[in-house]
């Protein structure tokens, strides 16, 4: 069971692009299993006729007019970037299937 969950955890950590140490893997899989078990409680409730709620306010059609405003100076856009070249963000080799 636990080993199974470690597989699950590794897959999830890959999806989330998180490097986990072995200790973290062990700790998280134990904790997350416990948390998810507790969350099973939700299955007690019958929600077959309930609409899901993604927004709490009864708002809709919040749109803006198609108007151009000044962009930000590129110096400010790039200021916090770890690495830049030719006014672009620099990234290392993109390997197959990212």
């Amino acid at each position: 069971m636990i080993r199974n969950f470690i597989q699950q955890l590794r897959k999830t950590a890959h999806l989330a692009r998180l490097n986990l140490t072995e200790e973290e893997e062990e700790l998280y899989s134990k904790q997350l299993e416990e948390i998810l078990n507790y969350f099973q409680k939700l299955q007690e409730l019958d929600t077959s006729n309930v609409e899901p709620m993604a927004h709490v306010l009864p708002l809709n059609n919040v749109w803006r007019e198609d108007e151009i405003k000044e962009s930000m100076e590129k110096e400010l856009i790039l200021k916090n970037a770890p690495e830049i070249e030719n006014n672009c963000f620099k990234v290392p080799k993109i390997v197959k299937n990212i």
Partner: peptide, 12 residues
């Protein structure tokens, strides 16, 4: 050296 490890290690 590659993007995917950059993501994973930086975030990790």
């Amino acid at each position: 050296k590659d993007l995917i490890s950059l993501y994973k290690v930086s975030r990790g």
